[in-house]
Design a protein around this nucleic acid. Structure first.
Lengths: 268, 268
DNA sequence: AAACAAGTTTCACATATTGGAACCTGCAAG
DNA sequence: CTTGCAGGTTCCAATATGTGAAACTTGTTT
């Protein structure tokens, strides 16, 4: 599972946190025990600590553990502080308004794709509750767009961590085939998802690059085969690319007005 | 600040996490050192651990620390798993569509109000609040709605933790005055925020209660004095209350279909 | 009443954490 | 240059912390 390094109390605690998160619903102590490598007493103490820290919450009635609210708070800070997401937000609104389809903003996280922001086709609700989800890199538009522009040195490591599960008949299922697809993507300047993750779902995606050329994230527009097709989506590429370029530019530029902020220096 | 209990490595690590979150922008090591009670070496190791766990990320170029992406991931799980938020979501959509004003869903977190979800007004007004953000309980509609229905035993503890900062001339600034206001609120069945937090901003809020009467959260509709007034907002109370009642009902009922889930029992 | 499962506490032992101090950087001033 | 210094990183002995097998509650089943 989350193959944590053997040592470090903090690592263990976070491991447990992931474990609880993985269940996706309130869990009892013994359920966790069955799925964790830690002995009863240790797990018990870790849980106590996490609850005390409000990273988990404990429902005494049902004697189950759930994710705590402190996390939501911390994540808010994480999102706000991320260089990409807050800057991209208004541009996502624009793009969403213009194309009227589902729009995704993603970043690489640990060889997977992390959706950082999203606009739905119907109701535009900017909120990270819908973001935060992770997905595979090898069969999503945003994933392939980022992979294509990653430093060559990093690629093998990341590709080796993909599961290559064949979600659909069109899923790319080997590093070799992926290399091919990424070359095409680079040549084209944008990536497609041709029903590689879910049948009927297609998308165009472009990378968001810093002015130094580093991959900051990716931007995509998703639709269905019922409504459109790849070549129609490709027509959107110039628009999406231009927006991605703007976001990349602004993100590179902004670098936080650090010297302007900090008239507060005191001890805790 | 986050007055953590003296012991526990995990507590310290999370304390540091909060510290970084508090800055709201990338920070250098020494900035953190100035604001933390921990000695250099200790703080250094804690930071290393957090970075290794991807709870923080370290920008080598600028040698600054920022919140990590793993948090966003965990928070997503937290949100999804929370009994209230996912259930309330469609109802927020409804309410938002019907009233066309800003709608908030909040919960109590550690004597403060945590905004868990939000819908913007059609004609969005710039305002201090966003999902994941925390706010004071004593001068917000949602805060007062929840306080009014909390078990009496819990109230003193929570009230004693309020800052009573007079944001505006109308802010309630003492526990005594609050007791009065809460009594009125209970009698009325819903709470007002009469420009108590920000001038020109007013709101109606109702508590969301479980069928057992426990406070699960609160629901509010916010507007401005430029556009409407308290008595007009009060007219919305029946609608909001009814939605809140539905949410409370569904949340109480749902209690996760536990027996349906778990054909997987194995050791890690 | 006896057997059992789930959760909690104990305690001697091991180890991870601690933090003062020494040690590396750059870099700016002499 | 070379000296001084602030921001960062590493050492290491002392010790506080975390460990986990086993004993012990509690509540539930047979």
């Amino acid at each position: 599972m989350t193959a944590t390094a053997g040592d470090g109390t903090v690592a263990k605690a976070l491991d447990v946190l992931d474990l609880v998160a993985g269940f996706g619903h309130p869990v009892r102590f013994s359920d966790l025990l069955d799925h964790s490598p830690y002995p009863k007493a240790t797990l018990y103490r870790l849980l106590q600590t996490l609850v005390a820290q409000r990273m988990l919450s404990f429902d005494a009635d049902r004697s189950t553990y759930t994710m705590g609210l402190r996390l939501v708070r911390l994540a808010h800070a994480a999102w706000e502080q991320s260089a990409l997401a807050p800057i991209a937000r208004p541009h996502l609104d624009d793009l969403s308004a213009k194309v009227g389809e589902t729009v995704h903003l993603a970043q690489m996280d640990h060889a997977q794709v992390l959706y950082v922001d999203k606009r739905n086709a119907r109701d535009p609700i900017p909120m990270y509750s819908q973001a935060g989800k992770v997905g595979p890199a090898y069969c999503t538009g945003v994933g392939k767009a980022m992979l294509a522009y990653l430093p060559e040195a990093d690629l093998p490591g990341i590709l080796s961590q993909q599961s290559w599960h064949p979600f659909t008949a069109k899923t790319i299922t080997s590093a070799a085939a992926m290399a091919q697809d990424l070359a095409t993507t680079r040549a084209r300047g944008f990536a497609f998802d041709n029903e590689e993750h879910e049948p009927g779902i297609i998308c165009v995606a472009v990378p968001i690059l810093s002015s130094g050329g580093a991959v900051l994230g990716a931007l995509s527009v998703t639709s269905t085969t019922a409504r459109t097709n790849l070549s129609a989506l490709a027509d959107l590429a110039p628009l999406i690319s231009s927006i991605a370029r703007t976001i990349g530019q602004e993100t590179t530029d902004w670098r936080f007005p650090e010297q302007a902020v900090q008239p507060n220096r005191k001890r805790a």
